[in-house]
Amino acid sequence: MKITVNGEARTTKARTLAELCGELGLLDAKVATARNGEFVPAKLRAQVSLAGGDAIEVLSPRQGG
């Protein structure tokens, strides 16, 4: 299935957002996620199914002003 992750096209076998985080090597990382512009809390990632064309954002803490 083709999706975009952080703006980049990606082909994935992941069925859920949690599986995608695993595929990205971010299962234990300090990240927050959104699917198609909607926030997905960490505890719901295993319940959120992915669909072709989904736009996923995976963000982590960064310096800011």
Binding site: V31, A32, S60, P61, R62, G64
Partner: peptide, 16 residues
């Protein structure tokens, strides 16, 4: 103040 940005996965522990 801090922010959040796209995680590239290159150094997944940097944010932490």
């Amino acid at each position: 103040t801090v922010s959040l940005r796209r995680e590239s996965g290159r150094d997944a522990s940097a944010g932490q």
